[in-house]
Design a protein around this nucleic acid. Structure first.
Length: 497
DNA sequence: CATTGTTTATAGCATA
DNA sequence: TATGCTATAAACAATG
């Protein structure tokens, strides 16, 4: 099969599409000029899977972010040294605040999960990030694998995450985590075993980790642990990202959303932080001290109620606004009887922290992929805000930081034979466009176990949203360019190539 | 009995 | 100063 560049693929796709749907031809005059300040996707188009290909030698030596690191940062919307991204590095990112950084990720440095990397106690080497303070002194490398005196400057959550990734397994046992840590961090080989208690404590209390009960036919003791995909974006290259932001930040960022927004809720839960949620119950301010409430409604059990599959009317409104948490769907699958998520192999994917996760999901679960190529900021996080309903037809581009969506009317769907009210026309255009796109992403293939829920949102309801922000076909193809570069296994698309 | 998992409590530090 | 994050310790239950 010839190697196609992303423009080739985009053009080819466009040609094939227009061969099938010539009515979708868009003339230049039909293209609505967009405000670049809000909708420019140049930075996104510049992001190519080729440049981000972890297999591709990047010549990065010690002190430079590995291609994987670079890739992941880019995928999080932090193009190296770029100022054209709508995002900026998170202030609370431990990976970017002088924390020691891998010199070759232990997680992704090869198939040898025990391969110990060298770590550098230095500022973030990615000097391309102007916000990141760079230490003047040269990095002092510490080999944590052999140095028993230096405690690795990684939180337990980070260590757990590293171990999970290194295992290349979708789920790991506690002992696996122990083993990986002791193998790769000499400090813990010699330390008192109390750190294991802390590991267990962290696994239990940190919402980012999800326990997977052992099947009855699986021998052994204890369950498995995995990174809760809902919080997978809290890890950057194995480093636990703190999500500490002020309440005002979230209030303002979600001011346009319903207070019952699941994503807002989710983020607010994150903001609540470790103590406020770690015990599975909310804290209450009593006499200046935090006190536990007897209720055990929140935390992990709470996520079930957040499921969009149990959407209330208000929740549906959020969904229509794009304020919807796809991860909740995953969570539902995870927490329910469905084994779909295992099929998605998201946890194996997490072994490369998001990158493979998305690739894997693209093959089988398109919405996440769409979420990424449509998203602009914290892409992993944003992908979680995409519903699989939105992923087709609507091509959810409503994620806030991108400030972009698709006006399906721009697809020039031929008008229906009979006279219609303009609004009705738009609706039909949207629906027809939806049908086109549906061929690329059929909901029935996403969650076949729950076909009734796959039809939760009638397409009529998203009309207004679709009208809100225009995007021309050409622009859509521009978006597709990067997308299809990564979507080659996508059989239905191949038919168009 | 050892391991695993949960929960409570507290301290120290960072940050808004 | 209040709050959040992390580490640490410990008690306790469940399980193989």
């Amino acid at each position: 099969m010839p190697v196609l560049t992303s423009p080739d693929i985009a053009n080819k796709f466009k040609e094939k599409w227009l061969a099938v749907y010539p009515e979708d031809q868009v003339t230049g005059s039909d293209s609505v000029p967009l405000d670049d300040s809000l909708t420019s996707l140049h930075w996104l188009q510049n992001f190519s899977i080729l440049s981000a290909d972890p297999e591709r030698p990047n010549g990065a030596g010690p002190g430079c972010p590995s291609s994987q690191q670079h890739l992941f940062l880019k995928r999080l919307g932090f193009p190296k040294g770029g100022t054209d991204s709508p995002s900026s590095p998170p202030a609370g990112d431990t990976a970017a605040t002088g924390m020691p950084l891998y010199l070759g990720s232990p997680v992704t440095s090869g198939s040898d999960s025990t391969a110990a990397p060298r770590f550098a106690s230095c500022a973030h080497p990615a000097s391309g990030y102007p916000q990141i303070p760079i230490q003047a002194s040269p990095p002092v490398e510490v080999d944590y694998k052999t140095n028993p005196k230096v405690k690795p400057p990684y939180s337990y959550a980070s260590l757990i995450c590293m171990a999970m990734q290194a295992s290349k397994q979708p789920k790991v046992t506690l002992s696996t985590i122990y083993n990986w840590i002791t193998e790769n961090f000499c400090y813990y080989r010699h330390a008192e075993p109390s750190w294991q208690n802390s590991i267990r404590h962290n696994l239990s209390l940190n919402k980012c980790f999800k326990k997977v009960p052992r099947q009855k036919d699986e021998p052994g003791k204890g369950g498995f642990w995995q990174i809760d995909p809902q919080y997978a974006d809290m890890f950057v290259n194995g480093i636990f990202k703190r999500r500490r932001m002020s309440a005002n930040h979230y209030n303002s960022s979600s001011s346009s959303s319903s207070s019952s927004s699941s994503s807002t809720h989710r983020q607010s839960k994150l903001v609540q932080g470790y103590h406020s949620t770690q015990n599975g119950c909310p804290y209450q301010e009593v006499g200046g001290k935090r006190k536990h409430l007897p209720s055990k409604i929140s935390n992990k059990a709470m996520r079930v109620t957040e499921s969009p599959l149990l959407a209330t009317e208000a929740h549906k409104a959020d969904i229509l606004r794009g304020d919807f948490d796809l991860a909740s769907v995953f969570d539902d699958v995870l927490s329910g009887n469905c084994s779909t998520f295992e099929d998605l192999d998201i946890n194996t994917a997490l072994s490369s922290l998001g990158c493979e996760m998305e690739v894997s999901m693209q093959g089988r679960q398109h919405s996440a992929g769409l979420g990424r190529w449509c998203g602009g900021g914290d892409l992993m996080g944003q992908s979680q805000h995409l519903s699989h309903h939105q992923s087709y037809g609507y091509m959810d581009l409503s994620t806030a930081s991108l400030e972009c969506a698709v006006n399906m009317g721009e697809l020039q769907v031929p008008p229906p034979p009979q006279q219609q009210h303009p609004q009705q026309l738009d609706q039909d255009q949207l629906l027809q466009s939806h049908h086109h796109l549906q061929q690329f992403d059929e909901p029935s293939t996403l969650f076949p176990e729950r076909p009734e829920e796959a039809m939760l949102q009638p397409w009529e309801e998203i009309k207004e949203e679709a009208q809100a922000i225009p995007l021309t076909l050409d622009q859509g193809f521009g978006l597709c360019e990067g997308f299809f570069t990564e979507m080659q296994p996508w059989e239905r698309v191949e038919a168009y190539l």
